[in-house]
Amino acid sequence: MNKKQIAITLGVMCFLLTIAICVQLRTMSSASSTVSQTLSDNGLRDEVLRMKEKYDNTYSELENAQKELEKIRQEATQNDSTAEAKEQEIRENNILLGNTDVTGDGVEVVLADATVTNSLNPSYQIIHFGDIQDVVNELKNAGAEAIEINGQRLVNTSAITCEGNIIKINGERVGSPFYIRAIGSQSLLYGALTRAGSYLDIIREYGNTAEVTKVDDITISKYAGSITYEYMKEDK
């Protein structure tokens, strides 16, 4: 065995080793920088990261599948006028259901917890799920066509719920400040929220932030989940 051969093999091995170490370092630094002291905490963190990764993977798969479906649908309807009409109908229904990203003029409402405590009851100084519900109702009443709260699109199955000390929308947790964005007639939406005695006034009374602004060209993202049904049937 000559020395040159040994040197080359050792070099190649070190090369592979450093690549692996670099990849590992980058993965770990991107995952999370905090390492907890206790084993059970670390295990839980591991579990959360794995679940998140699994979710991300599945979600990207779903998106790919949807794109594929769209493509196939387009190909199938290329030379068929009745199918084209159906395609148009599907597209419109998707817009109504909240399955597509939509843009349009509208308003943005910002609700945030009070920063200064000046009330005896601190419960008044935070935004509750009921406050959000009331604002959403107000917006819907004024004819909002698409509503999104902190990136969560409101669709017909959406729920705004209070789960202890957090608020969940579509089953995903959201926190203050809440950015409620709605597409619809700007003057109607703005008027409904700024009229005297409107719900925002009540929120503001306790020191919480509640602001409305007219915004042009809002983009509201599509609903991330899927709308399915199991029990209902068409009544003939």
Binding site: I8, C14, F15, L17, I19, A20, R26, T27
Partner: peptide
């Protein structure tokens, strides 16, 4: 031998920095 090792380490580090990350499950 040590020149080869150091060279391998440096080239490996340069390539490793630009490699894609692996998923956390396999780390």
């Amino acid at each position: 031998i040590f020149i080869a090792i150091v060279l391998g380490c440096i080239v490996g580090a340069l390539i490793g920095v630009n490699m894609p990350m692996i998923s956390y499950t396999y780390s």
